[in-house]
């Protein structure tokens, strides 16, 4: 990649657009989550601020911005304050490499998938930092859970995505998208259903969403790693959760649902539509299931998903070799 002025300007513009996207996403998704939860539970959800509560999240974020950040006694100041930033910051870079549409990618790299997988691990670091620095036992347990959970889930996730990379012969997300162009049954979800199954389950584990929201686990750990956070610190952790949700939804759209390839008129709108649908699915799941226990979570992963992922990888390799 040549470093010309044009490229730098393009990169900066892309980063700016991504920041706007992430903030907008959090605002909209929090509203959607509350509204969907309301409908599922047969209540109206946010209703008062704005039409059908659309501005509720804006009002909430103003409140969170204005609130004092309470530092718990004998906490690690630097870590405590930097953890939320650390949770949010790597996300900006990840969104650079996602091909939203044929002409819409912040930064085209041929190792996009690898970059994404590498950077998603950073969020775990932020959770550990936050949980440790809070000097709170609930936070500590939450952070410890988060570490073993993400270690456990990243391996099947990588195995599942590796099968895709085998099939497309590339780690470049643009290439993977192009390989799915044509018609709907060329989407990877039909060609790699097992990989998709593993991917969906690991998504919930990676994003710490129910039924795998053990690091937060409010009925056991009150708030888990963000028990002590208030104001903007809490808001950033919250944003990070929705951002990682959006990330896995974009990944699902690009890797399994053909990205910008639609049934008709290809374009970036398909990516966003698929992303939105996948996020709605995640919300729907959250408001349906109880939480799994911690040992069960590890069992699901090490005893079922890991062998399944290996099997899938092996079958893919054999099939590719034979045909």
């Amino acid at each position: 990649m040549d470093i010309s002025l044009l490229n730098v300007i393009k990169l900066l513009l892309a980063l700016l657009a991504i920041i706007v996207l992430l903030v907008l996403n959090s605002v909209v998704m929090v509203w959607l989550e509350r509204k969907a939860a309301g409908f599922v539970q047969r209540r109206p959800g946010p209703y008062v601020v704005g039409p059908h509560g659309l501005l509720q999240t804006v009002a909430d974020s103003v409140k969170l911005l204005a609130k004092q950040i309470v530092l718990p006694g004998s906490s690690d100041r630097l870590l405590f304050l930097s953890a939320p930033v650390l949770a949010m910051f790597p996300m900006f870079l990840i969104f650079l490499v996602i091909p939203y549409g044929p002409w819409l990618t912040g930064l085209e790299v041929n190792l996009g998938l690898l970059l994404i997988l590498a950077f998603t691990g950073l969020e775990t670091l932020a959770v550990i930092a936050g949980g440790w620095a809070s000097n709170n036992k609930y936070s500590l347990i939450g952070a410890a859970r988060c570490v073993s959970q993400s270690v456990a889930y990243e391996i099947p996730l990588i195995l599942a995505l590796l099968a895709l990379a085998f099939m497309c012969g590339s780690l470049d997300l643009t290439v993977i998208t192009e390989a799915q162009s044509g018609w709907v049954w060329r989407w990877n979800i039909f060609r790699q259903p097992l990989a998709f199954f593993i991917f969906v389950i690991t998504c919930f584990g990676e994003t710490n969403r129910a039924p795998f929201d053990l690091p937060e686990g409010e009925s056991e750990l009150t708030g888990g790693y963000h028990t002590e956070y208030s104001g903007m610190g809490f808001a950033l952790f919250f944003m990070a959760e929705y951002t990682s949700m959006m990330l896995v939804s974009f990944l699902a759209a690009v890797l399994f649902f053909g990205g910008s390839n639609g049934p008709f008129i290809n374009g970036f709108w398909w990516t966003f539509l698929k992303m939105g649908l996948f996020m709605t699915f995640m919300i729907w799941v959250r408001w349906t299931f109880p939480r799994v226990r911690f040992d069960q979570l590890l069992n699901i992963n090490w005893k079922w998903l890991l062998p399944l992922g290996l099997l899938n990888l092996w079958v893919t390799a054999v099939v590719l070799k034979l045909f």
Partner: peptide
């Protein structure tokens, strides 16, 4: 998922005028 989904989509048919607002929908 089917159960919660059915409850979650409950308000939409009423809003679209496909169903009478029987007791309970949307709330």
């Amino acid at each position: 998922l089917h159960i919660t989904g059915r409850f979650g989509l409950g308000p939409f048919p009423v809003w679209l005028g496909l169903k009478e607002p029987e007791s309970g929908y949307p709330q």
